[in-house]
Amino acid sequence: MTYRPTTIAAPSAPVRGGGLAAYARLAKLDIYDYYLGLPLVWALLAPAVRWDAGTFGLLGLVLLAEVVVVAAMVGFDDVTGFRDGSDAANYGSDAARRRLHRKPLVAGTLTEPQALRFAWAATAIGTALWAAAVAAAPHRPVWAAVLAAVCVAASVQYSWGLKISYRGFQEVFLIGLGIGWTLVPYALLTGAAPAFVIVQAVAFGAGPMLFGLYSNTGDADGDRAAGRITVATLVSARTHRTFVAAATGALVLLIAGSAAAGIAPWWFPAVLLPVVAMRLAHLVIGFRGEILRARRIAIHAHRVTVALLVAANLVASGIAS
């Protein structure tokens, strides 16, 4: 989940005793796009549930659980990337541009044992927090509890254990985690997951997948050398551009088709018209070879999607009530 392959030698003597800042960078605390599903969940709730004090408490607990699980995931990912050389290959002469300091093992601000201890501790704490969230929830559908457990297990094994991101499942994971982390808290608060909520969860989950595809485009050589299987490493650059176009088109079809099928209200595609324009823009820019710029637009499109859906759901529920 990085940008452009080049070559750089890993530091020969990592600095020991990394401080809190190094651990914060290891945890990638500045990456918050998956957590934006929680404001969306809150906006999707009925007003009586939305403003209940217990709702805020549960969403806060889920947020903490998500942050800690992501810290475990990216911690293991950094260890694996450091060991197989993919992080060193994907961060190079443009290290300042690509913020090499965000990879503390390659930058030498943490050692591998320190990163491993951090990742295992985060795994234990994150699992406990998710278990506490399920136990404290007003509703506990079995499918939601199972989905929460699957999300935790898949996150921890993204680049560790089963190494699912190395086995050809990275793209599925990127969209699946966003869907899961939207549906689970909604179900824990309401006991169900209506069709329109599922549509919005998929639209949300597609955001990290789409900007992840641009990362994979830039990382194809380094990932291929490290044995990581993604669509970008298996096909030509031209075919991968077609794949990105197909994924983008599928999202646009979901937005328009769900309203046409009566699953989503009429306002759903109308509200997301700016997002559709942004999606088409990053697609054209990506086809021109400006991968980093296309990725930035894709990230902004994801955040705009959340902002528009939060506002629209609040307005719609206000009218309905």
Rank of each mutant, 00 (worst) to 15 (best):
103 K>D: 05
276 V>K: 04
74 V>C: 10
316 A>I: 12
256 A>R: 10
137 A>E: 01
161 G>D: 05
312 A>T: 07
253 L>N: 12
111 T>V: 10
47 P>T: 09
240 H>Y: 14
85 G>T: 03
301 A>K: 04
41 V>I: 09
306 V>E: 10
113 P>D: 08
59 L>H: 07
97 R>M: 03
318 G>H: 09
144 A>I: 01
302 H>W: 13
121 A>Q: 04
99 R>W: 02
115 A>G: 04
220 A>N: 01
158 Y>T: 02
192 A>D: 13
267 W>K: 07
31 I>P: 00
291 I>P: 02
152 V>R: 00
30 D>Q: 12
122 A>P: 03
316 A>E: 09
6 T>K: 13
214 Y>G: 02
58 L>H: 05
94 D>I: 08
284 V>M: 12
94 D>V: 10
18 G>D: 01
41 V>Q: 02
41 V>W: 01
207 G>D: 01
292 L>D: 15
247 A>M: 15
207 G>Y: 04
100 L>A: 12
186 Y>D: 03
307 A>Q: 08
74 V>Y: 05
156 V>M: 07
271 V>P: 13
291 I>S: 04
89 A>N: 04
102 R>A: 11
13 A>G: 11
222 G>W: 00
11 P>F: 14
61 L>P: 05
135 A>Q: 09
108 G>L: 07
261 A>W: 15
287 F>H: 14
246 A>Q: 07
274 P>G: 13
281 A>E: 14
224 R>W: 06
99 R>S: 03
123 T>C: 10
82 F>H: 12
158 Y>S: 01
11 P>T: 15
141 P>A: 05
285 I>E: 10
107 A>F: 09
235 V>R: 02
277 A>E: 14
296 R>C: 11
161 G>Y: 01
173 F>C: 02
55 T>W: 06
173 F>D: 00
307 A>Y: 08
86 S>E: 09
278 M>R: 15
149 A>W: 05
113 P>Q: 09
36 L>G: 01
222 G>I: 00
230 T>A: 02
105 L>E: 03
2 T>S: 15
246 A>W: 10
317 S>W: 11
150 V>A: 05
196 F>T: 11
65 A>T: 06
94 D>T: 08
245 A>I: 08
40 L>E: 01
254 L>C: 09
111 T>W: 10
43 A>F: 07
56 F>D: 09
214 Y>T: 02
148 A>L: 07
266 W>V: 15
256 A>F: 12
170 Q>L: 13
97 R>N: 02
